[in-house]
Design a protein around this nucleic acid. Structure first.
Length: 664
DNA sequence: CTTTCAGACCTTTTT
DNA sequence: GGTCTGAAAG
C-alpha cells in the first residue's frame, strides 16, 4: 500500500533570540537593580511613566533565563490583559517559555486554586461565581423575604447593601465600623443588616455560590487554616510579583504573605500617588507596611519619567505636591521641550464636546493617529454628550469603563438561559428567564421556582408544572429551548445562537432599539468561540468581563484606528500622545460626593494626577461653566480646585468663541 | 390575585 | 438606562 508521507515540522519558538539580552544597556541603574535581584522581598516605588512594566518584563525574562521553571513564577496584576501583555513581551525577549508563567488577577488565581481546594471549606469544586449584579439580586430577594422592603422604612437599597458588605470584607473591618464611618444615616438598621448578611452567607453556601469577595476570603481562609496546602502553594509559586500594589487591600496583602510564607521571594511594585481604588477597600498604606511585614525588604525607587515632556511633568508634579500624605519622589525627564498644557473654559457641555471633536481632528491632521488620543473622564456618563457629537461627525471611538456590555439587560437575559444548563438550581437565573415569558410576573415566577427547587426538578420536567394556565405555551417553548440546548455536540456559539433565536421575538417586543442590541448578541457569539466548556466561559466572563462599554461594541468593527474614551480608572497604566481631561469642574471632578471627607478628596486628587500623567506630548484640560446640577440643586461654575491651585505660568488659558455665521 | 404600564427619581470609580 | 411605586386592566 502506498502511504502518503506527512511531514511534522520542527517546532519553532515564537521569536528566537540569538543574542544575549543586555540588561545593563536596556535598563537604567534603578530598573536594573529591580530586575536582577532575584531573591528576597523587594519593594519598588515606581513613579508614573518610570518604566514599571518594562522592569517587570525584564525581571520575568531574567528569572526564566536563569533557569527558574516558568510554572514557579506568579505574576499578580490588576487585569488579565496587563498580565498577558507583560508575558507576551517577555516571550519576545527570550522565547515562549514565558507564556507558561502564571499571571492574572488575585480573583482569577483564587478562582483556579479554589476549584481544587474548595472541598476543604465545604464547597464543591463546581461552584458558580456571582458577579456584582447577581449578588445584588440575591440580596434583594432575601431582603424582601425578611420583610425589610416595606415602604414605611428607610432601608438601604440593594446596591448600597452590597457595597457595605463588600467594604467590610475587603477592609477586614466589622460592618458596624464601616457604617459608623460612611453610612451613618442607616446606622439604626445595623441589626437587620447583620441578619441579612448571615442569611446571604447561608444562601451562598447552600447554593454553591461565591461572590467576588468570597473568592478572596475563602482562598485566604484555606491558606490560613491548612498549613499543608499553604506550604504546597507557597512552594509552587517560589517567585511572586505583584503589580499595582498601591491598589491592593488588606485581604490581598495577607494572601500575598501566605503565598510567600515559605520563601519570602516577593516583589511588589506600586506608586502611592496613583492609589485610586480605596472605594474598593484598597489602602495605599499597604505599600509602606510592606517592609514591616517582610523583614529585610530592599526598597528601590524609580524616578526617571520616560513618558511625558517637561511641561506636562511640571504640571503633574504640582498636582501631587499638594497631597496631604505622600512618600516623596521627584520625577524628572530628558524630554525638556514641549507644548504647555492648555486649560479650556467652555460655555456649556456642548461647547466642550464641539471643541474636543474639532481639536481631535486637527491633531489627527498633524499626524497623530486617533488611537494615540484619549478623552479621560471621572465618571463614564460624563461622555454622553461627547459621544453624540462624535457620532454626528463620524469620528470612530471605543469606550472603556462604565456600563459594560456584559451588564446590559439583553446580554444578561441570554446568559441566564445558559447558566441554567450548568446549575438548574440557580433561582436568580430562573427568575430572569421566567419573567421574560408573557403572563408570568413575579408571583408566578416565584411559584414555579419553588416547585422546581422543592421537587428537585430538571429543566426537562418543566412541562409537567401542574398549573394549567395562560402561560403554558410560553413554558412549552422555554422547555423546548432548554432541552435542545442540552443536545450533544453543540458548541457554545451554537448554544448562544439557539438562545438568541428564541430570545429575538422577546427582544423586539421589549426594546425599540433592538437592532443595536442584536449586534451586541452577535458580539457575544464571537467572544464565546474560543471557549471549549460553558463552565469555563461563564466563570471567565464573571472574572474578566470584556472591558469595552456598550457603545464601543456597537461601533463598526473596523480595524481602523479609533479615538479612545475612558474613565480614569480604566486608563490605569496606559499612555497616549494626546490626552483630554474633561469636566474638570468643581463638583464633577472632584466629585461632589467627596466634599465631606478629606480622604476621599485626596483620592480625587490622585485621580487627577493619574489622568494628567497619561499624556506624553499634549494635555488639554476642559471644563464647562454654569452647569446646573440636579443632585445638589447648585450651579457649578468653578474649575476644579486641582487646576486652580496650579501656578498660571504652567499652562495656557483658552476661551472658546463661536464663529459668526454670515450665511443669512 | 396577578400582570402590565406609566411616571417619578437617581445615576462615581470595578474585580 | 435602571429601580421603585401606584393604579388600571386582566
Amino acid at each position: 500500500m502506498l502511504m502518503k508521507q506527512y511531514l511534522l515540522k520542527e517546532t519553532i519558538p515564537l521569536v528566537k533570540k540569538s543574542f544575549q539580552i543586555d540588561y545593563e544597556k536596556e535598563l537604567n541603574p534603578a530598573q536594573l537593580e529591580a530586575a536582577t535581584i532575584l531573591d528576597g522581598p523587594v519593594l519598588v516605588i515606581a513613579g508614573a511613566g518610570s518604566g514599571k512594566t518594562r522592569t517587570l518584563v525584564y525581571r520575568v525574562a531574567r528569572l526564566v533565563e536563569s533557569g527558574v521553571p516558568p510554572e514557579n513564577i506568579l505574576l499578580l496584576t490588576f487585569t488579565r490583559k496587563a498580565a498577558q501583555e507583560m508575558l507576551r513581551r517577555a516571550s519576545m525577549m527570550i522565547d515562549d517559555r514565558c507564556e507558561r508563567v502564571h499571571g492574572g488577577t488575585f480573583h482569577a488565581v483564587a478562582n483556579s486554586l479554589l476549584r481544587r481546594y474548595a472541598p476543604l471549606i465545604g464547597y464543591s469544586s463546581a461552584f458558580t461565581i456571582l458577579d456584582r449584579s447577581d449578588a445584588e439580586d440575591i440580596i434583594n430577594l432575601l431582603r424582601t423575604q425578611m420583610g425589610l422592603s416595606e415602604k414605611s422604612r428607610r432601608f438601604p437599597r440593594k446596591n448600597t447593601i452590597a457595597e457595605i458588605f463588600s467594604k467590610s470584607v475587603n477592609k477586614m473591618e466589622p460592618i458596624s465600623h464601616i457604617m459608623e464611618q460612611e453610612y451613618f444615616h442607616f446606622y439604626e438598621e445595623l441589626q437587620e443588616l447583620l441578619g441579612l448578611q448571615e442569611l446571604y452567607k447561608k444562601y451562598k453556601e447552600q447554593n454553591q455560590l461565591m461572590d467576588y469577595d468570597d473568592l478572596l476570603v475563602n482562598f485566604r481562609t484555606i491558606l490560613e487554616n491548612h498549613p499543608d496546602v499553604r506550604a504546597e502553594i507557597s512552594r509552587k509559586f517560589r517567585f511572586l510579583m505583584v503589580d499595582e500594589y498601591q491598589d491592593t487591600n488588606r485581604l490581598q496583602s495577607e494572601i500575598i504573605q501566605f503565598i510567600a510564607s515559605e520563601h519570602n521571594n516577593v516583589m511588589v511594585v506600586g506608586d502611592d500617588s496613583q492609589s485610586i481604588y480605596s472605594f474598593r477597600g484598597a489602602n495605599f498604606r499597604n505599600i509602606m507596611d510592606f517592609p514591616k511585614r517582610f523583614s529585610g525588604t530592599r526598597i528601590i525607587t524609580l524616578e526617571e519619567n520616560y513618558r511625558s515632556t517637561q511641561p506636562i511633568l511640571d504640571l503633574t508634579n504640582e498636582i501631587i505636591i499638594n497631597a496631604k500624605e505622600k512618600y516623596t519622589k521627584h520625577l524628572f525627564t530628558k524630554k525638556t521641550k514641549g507644548a504647555l498644557p492648555i486649560l479650556i473654559a467652555a460655555e456649556n457641555e456642548n461647547y466642550q464636546s464641539r471643541f474636543i471633536c474639532q481639536k481631535v481632528l486637527e491633531i489627527r491632521e498633524e499626524g497623530v493617529p486617533l488611537d494615540e488620543i484619549a478623552i479621560l473622564c471621572r465618571a463614564a456618563f460624563h461622555t454622553f454628550d461627547l459621544e453624540i457629537e462624535l457620532a454626528r461627525r463620524n469620528i470612530p471611538y471605543v469606550k472603556f469603563g462604565g456600563f459594560k456590555f456584559i451588564e446590559t439587560a439583553h446580554v444578561k437575559d441570554v446568559l441566564a438561559h445558559l447558566r441554567l444548563l450548568i446549575n438548574p438550581r440557580d433561582a436568580i437565573s430562573w427568575h430572569r428567564v421566567l419573567m421574560l415569558i408573557g403572563k408570568i410576573g413575579p408571583r408566578t415566577s416565584h411559584n414555579i421556582i419553588e416547585w422546581i427547587i422543592k421537587n428537585r426538578k430538571e429543566p426537562e420536567d418543566l412541562t409537567s408544572y401542574p398549573e394549567k394556565a395562560k402561560f403554558t405555551e410560553g413554558i412549552r417553548q422555554l422547555h423546548e429551548l432548554l432541552t435542545t440546548l442540552t443536545r450533544k455536540g453543540l458548541t457554545i456559539p451554537d448554544q448562544i445562537n439557539l438562545t438568541c433565536r428564541y430570545y429575538e421575538p422577546i427582544l423586539k417586543n421589549k426594546y425599540d432599539d433592538y437592532p443595536k442590541r442584536l449586534k451586541d448578541l452577535e458580539h457575544l457569539q464571537n467572544i464565546t468561540a474560543r471557549y471549549s466548556t460553558l463552565e469555563h466561559f461563564l466563570s471567565d466572563l464573571a472574572l474578566e468581563p470584556p472591558n469595552e462599554s456598550v457603545a464601543g461594541v456597537a461601533a463598526p468593527d473596523s480595524d481602523d484606528e479609533r479615538l479612545v474614551l475612558s474613565t480614569i480608572h480604566s486608563a490605569k497604566g496606559l499612555e497616549w500622545n494626546t490626552v483630554f481631561i474633561i469636566w474638570a469642574l468643581e463638583g464633577k471632578f472632584p466629585s461632589s460626593y467627596a466634599f465631606n471627607s478629606e480622604e476621599e478628596m485626596e483620592e480625587e486628587r490622585r485621580l487627577m494626577y493619574v489622568a494628567a500623567t497619561r499624556a506624553k506630548e499634549n494635555l488639554f484640560i476642559t471644563y464647562p461653566v454654569n452647569i446646573y446640577d440636579r443632585v445638589s440643586g447648585k450651579v457649578f461654575s468653578k474649575p476644579s480646585r486641582f487646576v486652580r491651585e496650579i501656578p498660571s505660568e504652567l499652562f495656557e488659558n483658552w476661551a472658546l468663541t463661536e464663529e459668526l455665521d454670515y450665511s443669512y
